[in-house]
Structure formats: C-alpha cells, structure tokens
Design a protein around this nucleic acid. Structure first.
Lengths: 239, 239
DNA sequence: CGATATATTGACAGGAGTCAAAGAGGGTGG
DNA sequence: CCACCCTCTTTGACTCCTGTCAATATATCG
C-alpha cells in the first residue's frame, strides 16, 4: 500500500478523518515508476496535475542567469512538491527525480473537487504548502548566515529529521543518493569546496556520505555545527 | 479608504467578487498605527490573529545560531505577512515594522469563518501564501548563486516591481527606508560590503539609496545585473 | 552640544571559488 | 578479461570576493 505514504505524512500534521484520506487516495489517477534524473515538470510549464512522492527522492531546482543552478529543496516520500502548481499559473522551478522514484499523479480538477467538498483536506494541503515555506525560510537563513560546514550539517540534520518521520532512518544512517556536485548546487557552494567540507567531517568523525548513504557519526555535533533546532520544526504541528 | 489596500492586492491575483472583498474588509477588527521598529509578532509566539499591511514597510527576520540575523522578506501595503500563523502553531520568525506603518488586524476565528463560507477567499489567500513561497525561492537563488552586487540589484528590482503594482513608484524613485545594516542582513552580507557595493553602484550611475529613497538611475542595468526576470513573477498570475 | 545611530574608509585576513590534473569506480564492448 | 569511457571524487596551487576590525565622518536628536 504505497499510496499511504502520502496519507501518512499529511496526517502527521492534521486530523484528517479516514474518509478524507480515502478521498485523497481515490483521486490518485496514476502511479508511475520514474528513473533517476527524470524531469517531472519544468520551469515555465503549466500543468494540469500535481504529484505525490511515494518512494525515492526528487528535488526542486532553478537556474539563475549565468547558468548556475540552485537546488531549492529535496523531497521524500509523502511530499507533494508541486502542489502550488494548482494555484499558480506557471511553475517557477523544475522538479526532477534524484533517484528512481515512485510517483503518484493527481489531476488538479479532481483535487479541486475534493478540496471544495472537504474543508479538512483543503486545510491539510494548505498547511503542507506552508510547511514548505517554513523550510524555505530556514534555507534562506542557512545560505545567508552560515558558513559552508554549517550549511552542510544543517542540511543533513534537516533531512534526517524529515526522513525519521517516515521511518527512513536506521542506525544513524539513511539513504540519500546525491552527488557532491548536487550538494554544491543545493548549498550554494562549489563542488570542490563541498568535497573539502565532507573530508573534514570525515576526518573529525562527524559524518560521512558514501555510496548514496549518509552516516551520522556524531549527531550532537552535526546538530550543533548546523545550528539545527528541532524546535524550528515545531511550528509544523497543527495549530 | 486604506483598508482597500489589502483588497487591491488580493484582487490582483484573483477574481474575488465585491461581496468577497467586503467580507474580508468587514472582519478587520482593528487598525493601528505602529511606530518604526515595532514588533508585530516574534518567533515562537502563538497568535490568534493575523495582520494586513495598509501602509508602510515591515520585514520578517530570524536569528540563527551565532546571533546573526537574517531578514527573510520585506513587506509592503497589501501584504499579509503572517497569514500562515493561522495554520502553523508557532511563528517561525519575527515580524517587525521597518517604518511607521498602518496595520489592520484580523482574528483567526473570523478569518476561518469567512474562508469556510467563501471558497474564493480561501483560494485567494492560499494563493497569497504560495506567492510568498515563490519569492522565497527567488531569494534562495539569489543567496545561493549571485554575488553581492547582483543580490543588491535583484532586491531593488523585485521591490520596484512589487511597489509599482501598488503605485508606490514614481519617476524611477521609491521610498524604502532601510539602513545599510538591514540591507546587509537581508542580503547575507556584511554592512561594510553593502556600503561598498552601493558606492560602486553610485559611481557607475546605476542606482542610489539615500535618505530612505531608492533612485533607479539605470533600470535596464539593474535588471541585468540582478538577473531579474519579470517573467519570474508571471506565475503569480492566477491559474 | 554631547550622545547615539548610520555611513564611510582603509588595512588585513580568510573562506570559498576557479582551474587543471589525477584518481576511482562502474559499465560496456570487443 | 581487459581496454575504454564516463561520471564522480580528490588534490594542489592560486585568486578573489567578502568579512573583520578599527577608526573617522555624518547625521540626527533631545
């Protein structure tokens, strides 16, 4: 029952009834397995449906003038990374799979209907988009105020927390198939410098990223270096 | 008719009826004039109401570990910078007036009621929060990929566009009472460096910030340097 | 007219970028 | 089974953008 991945997360933050979740589940019109690096939507497109990550990773990215690409966020099972496409005319960024991923698609029209009939669902989804914004804000703080190592640590700490919520963290390890080049694009650093930071972390026994796996050697330190405050994710809880 | 400032903007992006806007207007429970530097809400607070900027400027900010403060966004008349407080338990950032400002307050309960009765209003407000996220994403791109001068130029170009939409730009000048220190906090730079960038812009006849006024000496260049794409704000139009 | 906030300068340090080359894996095809 | 290619990682040298520190204007204001 992979689709329940979506439900699981939405439920985390709200009090959806069984019927509500069933309604959501019922409008997932198709589920596809996409290979790594598949584009789900691109900047400028107008889409008629949105998607739910059921497994795997994806990321949002945007190219700025000069050709540099900025990764805006990583997405995991349960996320609906293009939900906003329902209300904004054009996508303002790309959405691409990072790994092979199972993705469910929901037609905007069907979703609109569920929303109009079920205020609780509307609220839950609205809240999802607001949580998205909370993460963006943290990201802005990271890019604006933290040095390279701290950004790296913060990213790892945040991912760990989000992945833990869907039981994807085991033994202080989690799968995260990202290249150093992509980390660089996410952190606003050069790939070379990402490599150096990573090596320093390895040398200090703080963390390691190897073969698509992140190993947390010293969580306390990661959290400290990254200035990660779990409380920052408290506002995510329902009002 | 200051409250219509709110309506004007919300209408920009949607097709609210006259009754819808009237409903919104009717629940503004109080309007207050706040002095510059007044805190509207602070991180961690749980609020029972949200606000609409009717005049003046405000900004969202967040302090990261190490005491550095990051300004997340500036807000102008028509904005509802803490709308998300209705659905997220705690504020994840501060909201402070930059200048003297007239602010309208709306009770969450009243707003919830209007929302539940008027789907169009719900959609319009949801969209407002999504537009917020669009701006955050652009901001992330700026911080992650652009050098100091470009960030500065981008900020000016974005503000210009937003202010123009509410007729607050005249003769290539607009009021924006910000100190270099605050610009630094917004741009993720040191105040000293902001000063240097500004001087270089002055010397090149590109733009000038003086006595709370931004003067655009060469808009084309500002847009070019900042990598500002007006199309980026196209997605803001209704779907 | 001091007192406090903001803007400006200069000297210096340092984090991060760039460039370029060399390893390391992992497939693939002969 | 090995050569070859491609992507990703690692290194080293050097540059440079931006930060830090500290001192000096300028402004503003009671």
């Amino acid at each position: 029952m992979p689709i329940d991945m979506m439900i699981r997360k939405v439920r985390l933050h709200t009090g959806l009834t069984e019927e509500d979740t069933a309604a959501l589940r019922s409008i997932v019109s198709s589920v596809r397995d996409l290979g790594a690096g598949t584009s789900i939507i691109q900047e400028g497109e107008i889409s008629s449906h949105c998607c739910v990550m059921l497994s795997g990773f994806s990321y949002r990215a945007k190219v700025s003038d000069g050709g540099k690409r900025q990764i805006l966020s990583f997405h995991i099972a349960g996320d609906m990374p293009d939900l906003h496409g329902m209300f904004l005319k054009r996508m303002d960024h790309d959405l691409t799979t990072l790994t092979q991923a199972r993705v469910g698609f929901i037609d905007h029209r069907a979703l609109r209907q569920v929303i109009s009939l079920r205020p609780a669902v509307a609220e839950a989804l609205w809240r999802e988009t607001l949580i998205d914004a909370v993460l963006f804000r943290e990201w802005i703080v990271s890019l604006g105020t933290r040095p390279a190592a701290a950004r790296m640590a913060y990213l790892v700490a945040e991912l760990r927390q989000r992945l833990a919520a869907i039981d994807m963290v085991a033994e202080d390890q989690f799968r995260f198939p990202v290249t150093q080049a992509k980390l660089a694009e996410a952190l606003g650093l050069s790939a070379v410098h990402v490599n150096r930071v990573l090596q320093s972390f390895r040398a200090q026994g703080i963390l390691d990223i190897h073969d698509s796996v992140v190993t947390l050697r010293d969580i306390e330190k990661i959290v400290e270096i990254g200035g990660f405050n779990e409380l920052n994710l408290q506002p995510l809880e329902s009002a």
